[in-house]
Nucleic acid binder design. Sequence first.
DNA 1: GCTCGTTACTAAATCGATTTCTTTTGTCTA
DNA 2: TAGACAAAAGAAATCGATTTAGTAACGAGC
Lengths: 345, 345
Amino acid sequence: MKEAVSLKDIAKICQVSVSTVSKALNDRADVGREKKEEIQRVAKELNYVPNFMASTLRSKKTRNIGVLLSESTGTNLMHEHFARILNSFKDTVEERGYFISFLNANNSPNRLSFMEQCKYMNFDGVFMLCADYQKPEVKELLASNIPIAAVDHTMPKHINIASNQYGDMRRLMQLIYYRGHRKIAYIHGENNEVTTGRVSAYKTFMTEHNLPIPREYLYTCPYRDYERGSALTKAVLALPNRPTCIIYPDDLTAVGGLNMMQESGMVIPRDVSIAGYDGLNLVNIVRPRIATIRQDTVSMGIQAGNKLINRIEFPDATPVAETVTVDGMVEPGESLAVISHSRHQ
Amino acid sequence: MKEAVSLKDIAKICQVSVSTVSKALNDRADVGREKKEEIQRVAKELNYVPNFMASTLRSKKTRNIGVLLSESTGTNLMHEHFARILNSFKDTVEERGYFISFLNANNSPNRLSFMEQCKYMNFDGVFMLCADYQKPEVKELLASNIPIAAVDHTMPKHINIASNQYGDMRRLMQLIYYRGHRKIAYIHGENNEVTTGRVSAYKTFMTEHNLPIPREYLYTCPYRDYERGSALTKAVLALPNRPTCIIYPDDLTAVGGLNMMQESGMVIPRDVSIAGYDGLNLVNIVRPRIATIRQDTVSMGIQAGNKLINRIEFPDATPVAETVTVDGMVEPGESLAVISHSRHQ
DNA sequence: GCTCGTTACTAAATCGATTTCTTTTGTCTA
DNA sequence: TAGACAAAAGAAATCGATTTAGTAACGAGC
């Protein structure tokens, strides 16, 4: 290993004390102009790089943000939606001189708890991407006073970057409605904050427009479960009062439905219309292109990063909950048929 | 913040010195059985968590591995192939008590170079997922003596986790050949180590089987470029001597071709057969399912993690290049027609 | 001429561990 | 019983920075 250059080395060369070097490199006021410039010049020449461990041991500021992915599956790095948000978050915090490390969420027996990992690493803050908020371990972290930002989950005293579930879903409903659909089934996700907002928008919209919501038009399906999306589609199609449009929890389940229908000889959207959610690459790749809500993952990452760093740098004695709502964009795709009502009017 | 518990606190309670506590918690031999157990018990009771900065400042071992994603686009977290490998790598190193941090590769002017970042963070090793090996900054890192593992790139004295490009491609060729195809076009990736192995397998196989390789059967296409895949397909189809099968650089370009063909009214594989590469989720989602080579990303991540940690823990004075070859698996899909030659025989 | 204040710098404490070097104590051997 | 030796513990140095407290020099003000 190349012998690392330390403050001491610079001090020796410049004939000054270590503390003067430290101050000069941190551009403090109580160092003479000439000395400061000389020290900075020498530091550059020697290719000096500070030692992270040493400086943060003393100063406690690590500029390191912990990222908590889903602890259950550990696979969420592979979900495009979260990968996109994380990518944008990473760019944002790096731009501001921070960097990210992952919290270890695997299930080896000797793993440190999230709280312990934060203590160990001195994380300045934590970004939760798809955590299980019911887990005691996560609750413990939320109850501590480390700054936290999370996606799509409101918490007391923390930052929530929320997709505009209600608004986005409402706009999707409008699109479908204006295309003439009146019998709209909704296969929605499992019960959580995200789902609640969307289901609420669905029900409100239907009610506002005097449309019935038959019990059998609502189904629960795990998010991103291609097979279940397919299976539930079969159930919907078997209904006596078959809907003209089916909305899915996300794009992947929608494709599950699409494929199932196409394989049984149906033509989309001639026979049935469908809509997904999220706006993954997928929707531009399958045919017909699926109507979807493209979530603004870039904005979500940027806002999460900036809000979190602001909290880190200007800590509040008693922080309060803060929610940033990010609008998605309706993408009509090709999977929504136009239904004419002229004959019946 | 909760006042952090330190060795000093434990020492005071147990009426021993700080060094004894340190030794006890590190399970060293020169501490008495009883004292050791008492100290460990107290540490657990107080919920003691060591301070990463302090311990690594002294010991120099961080158990922290830097991950270098492509520095050009910064988007590679979003490519399923690399995300899968990284995910498996992460699980592997975490299992062994290591963790990962990202090297910052954005292009802000005050960013530290990769080498500087390694010094700063004291990374024990680096995992390169899709770096630009031509960049001086990367070369500098490769020339240093920090342990490095990389995917699909051989380097002097470092670890290379390589897909078996030649063997995998050859098996894909066999499958296509046994289905009766003789006129096989190959839209391959841009010139790099990965591409070279595959093209070599293609040419060798064709030659071995006395098949001509018309110049117009070979095209270069950027990896994962859906649009180019589509455009080049158009060129191939326009050939007077149209091939019966087209092989693509990867699944995404293959879908680009598939969609283009289906939109122009062709039926796959009735009219043309196609094959992709990588084995992304995608191939099970589009119809027909595309023949592909499913790369063993799990094994790649595991091997990279283990090999790298072995080097970290048992450093070699003069390390030599080490290559681990990982076989992929042929997935026939539904996109390869069977061509009968009986009439002509 | 004495005090006061400012400027520019240094010495030393500190962060929380690890590690080396001693010292103490008890046991075993010649 | 002296000397050797091992086991158990502690003292102190150390890692490389930051930070606090303190000092020397010098000019200004009265």
